[in-house]
Amino acid sequence: MTLTLTVPPGAKVRVRITNENGETTEIEVEPGETVTITLPAGSTVRVEVEVVDPDGRKRTETFTLKP
């Protein structure tokens, strides 16, 4: 399973991925970048995406991906 994120110009994104064992991976994606994350097959993962807009506003979306 893959997750692809494209960050709009001016925004910053931090992604936290937590697996079933509670292990967390965190990455930051710079403005204008596209990143593809390969998620472990057969695992349920929690993905938290934090977006910081150019004006400093933050918003966070959290979702769970199941196999």
Rank of each mutant, 00 (worst) to 15 (best):
M1Y: 11
M1E: 03
T2Q: 05
T2R: 06
T2H: 09
T2P: 04
T2E: 03
L3S: 03
L3Q: 02
T4F: 10
T4R: 07
T4Q: 05
T6F: 13
T6H: 11
V7N: 02
V7P: 01
V7D: 02
P8W: 14
P8C: 14
P9H: 09
P9I: 08
P9S: 06
G10A: 12
A11N: 03
A11W: 07
A11Q: 01
K12N: 12
K12P: 03
K12I: 08
K12M: 09
V13K: 02
R14E: 13
V15S: 03
V15H: 01
V15E: 00
V15F: 03
R16Q: 03
R16M: 05
R16L: 04
R16T: 04
R16E: 05
I17S: 11
I17R: 08
I17N: 09
I17M: 11
I17V: 10
I17E: 12
I17H: 12
I17C: 12
T18E: 10
T18I: 14
T18K: 03
N19H: 06
N19R: 10
N19S: 09
N19I: 14
N19K: 08
N19D: 07
E20R: 05
N21K: 04
N21D: 11
N21Y: 09
G22H: 11
G22L: 06
G22N: 13
G22E: 10
E23D: 10
T24R: 07
T24P: 08
T24H: 08
T25E: 08
T25Q: 11
T25D: 05
T25Y: 09
T25V: 13
E26W: 05
E26P: 14
I27M: 10
I27W: 10
I27E: 11
I27Y: 13
E28M: 04
E28H: 07
E28S: 09
V29W: 15
V29D: 15
V29Y: 09
E30R: 09
E30C: 11
E30S: 05
P31W: 11
P31E: 05
G32D: 11
G32R: 12
G32V: 15
G32E: 13
E33T: 12
E33L: 09
E33H: 10
E33Q: 07
E33S: 13
E33K: 06
T34I: 13
T34M: 11
T34G: 11
T34D: 09
T34F: 13
V35S: 08
V35H: 13
V35G: 05
V35I: 08
T36R: 12
T36V: 12
T36K: 07
I37Q: 09
I37D: 04
I37M: 08
I37Y: 08
I37S: 11
I37F: 11
I37N: 14
I37C: 12
T38H: 08
T38A: 08
L39P: 11
P40R: 12
A41V: 05
A41G: 10
A41K: 09
G42I: 13
G42H: 12
G42S: 14
G42A: 13
G42V: 14
S43R: 15
S43N: 13
T44Q: 05
T44D: 04
T44Y: 11
V45Q: 07
V45L: 13
V45A: 05
V45D: 03
R46L: 11
R46M: 12
R46E: 06
R46D: 04
V47E: 00
V47T: 00
E48N: 02
E48Y: 01
E48H: 02
V49Q: 00
V49L: 05
V49M: 04
V49P: 00
E50C: 04
E50S: 04
E50A: 02
E50L: 01
E50R: 02
V51S: 04
V51G: 00
V51Q: 02
V52E: 14
V52H: 02
V52W: 08
V52Y: 04
D53F: 15
D53T: 10
P54W: 06
P54T: 04
P54R: 06
D55I: 00
D55M: 01
G56E: 00
G56Y: 00
G56K: 00
G56D: 00
R57G: 03
K58H: 03
K58F: 02
T60Y: 07
T60A: 01
T60S: 01
T60V: 11
T60C: 13
E61A: 08
T62K: 02
T62I: 13
T62E: 06
F63C: 15
F63M: 04
F63L: 11
T64A: 01
T64I: 15
T64W: 15
T64H: 06
L65Y: 14
L65E: 01
L65D: 00
K66P: 15
K66W: 15
K66R: 03
K66Q: 14
K66C: 15
K66L: 14
P67E: 05
P67T: 14
P67N: 12
P67V: 15
P67I: 15
